[in-house]
Design a protein around this nucleic acid. Structure first.
Lengths: 192, 192
DNA sequence: TTTTCCACTTGATGTAGATCAATTTATTTC
DNA sequence: GAAATAAATTGATCTACATCAAGTGGAAAA
């Protein structure tokens, strides 16, 4: 189960066996059943988390009780709430498992230690954050400039590898539309 | 004109006079008239930029020729295109001056040198990036969960210090709505 | 001053997507 | 494998926002 993470590391950076062992020694393995929470609103998030198996979602619940999905995450993705972690404030987000899930966790102090001791590790993380920043920016642009259908087509193209694993109601939530609307959009696309 | 940037630095971190001098020595001052570009689509962005005076916008132009404003920036804000800078690829964005503007520029190599030599400087930049990441995330959530009126009210509250300096048509673009709609929203709010 | 030009408003109408309600189709669960 | 539960579709109607078109007011230009 740690193996998936090790393979991920090997694909990104070259590490000595001491470094590998150091990383492994501070990792925490965790399994979650479908629908279980990794983070609940109000709790303070303490980790950096990497998904080795399964599919998760990060979402906020509004004052009407409606869930709004901000991110999905699958194998080889990092997830968490950077804001809560950084400021050590109660999170406004929930993270739970859409499928049975396995994750590798690192506490913030251990993670920072790894970044300090292994420059390549830090650079890898920096690169991921930068990329993630750009993805968010692109999504903001899409949100102010594209129709629901365009956003859906972008989504299934960009996330073709896991889009079919996600219930449509959740994709609709992520896109900011209603499940009925997504159903009609799909119907429209199919007829073309 | 550099003074505003120096005051900003002093408010954030403590530097030796050598460090201050080092930073100053690699800074580039630039003035722009209203409507002039700092970055044009297709060009590769080479700098880190800090606004010391005036107001700017970052926007993309879609295939119908419509401008979509992604960010505004005023005094004491950093601006640029991290994606283009990081990958050294042609930018998909434009940055221009909404008012006459003064900026402080740092080339990427010089900026990285400053980050390497002055850890506090690097930490300051990291903190800004983290904060900016969180702001983007909050904006994504708003885009999928809030009405146009709510987004407008959020905007004028969050950016109360400069919102009135920005033409309404540009605020509308930033919010992803039409100027006519924003006008009606404002009218509705005023009548309450 | 008068002309020109934007920024903004207002009205009439159109449309994408929401809402509500009823089925149908898949998945779980026992 | 039937019953129960959840996910997705479909139809009718409603609403927020867009579009198109005129008109107003205020600042810059001449």
């Amino acid at each position: 189960m740690y193996d998936t993470f090790q393979q991920y590391l090997d694909s990104k950076i070259t590490l000595t066996s001491d470094e590998k062992e150091l990383i492994r020694s501070v990792s925490i393995l965790k399994k979650l059943r479908k629908k279980q929470y990794l983070l609940q609103e109000g709790d303070v998030w303490k980790y950096h988390a990497f998904i080795t198996k399964g599919c998760m979602r990060t979402y906020a619940v509004d004052d009407k009780g409606i869930e709004h999905i901000i991110y999905f995450g699958v194998e080889n993705w990092w997830i968490g709430d950077r804001e809560s972690l950084l400021n050590q404030t109660p999170s406004r987000l929930n993270i739970d498992a859409i499928e049975d899930v396995e994750v590798v966790l690192f506490t913030a102090p251990n993670f920072d230690m790894l970044c300090a001791k292994i420059p390549d590790f830090r650079d890898m993380i920096q690169a991921i954050i930068s990329k993630s920043f750009n993805v968010n920016q692109t999504r903001i642009l899409a949100s102010i400039s594209k129709s629901a259908e365009e956003k859906y087509l972008d989504f299934i193209q960009k996330y073709a590898d896991f889009a079919m694993r996600i219930p449509q109601a959740m994709i609709a939530s992520y896109l900011g539309i209603k499940p009925e609307t997504l159903s009609r959009i799909r119907n429209g696309i199919a007829k073309k």
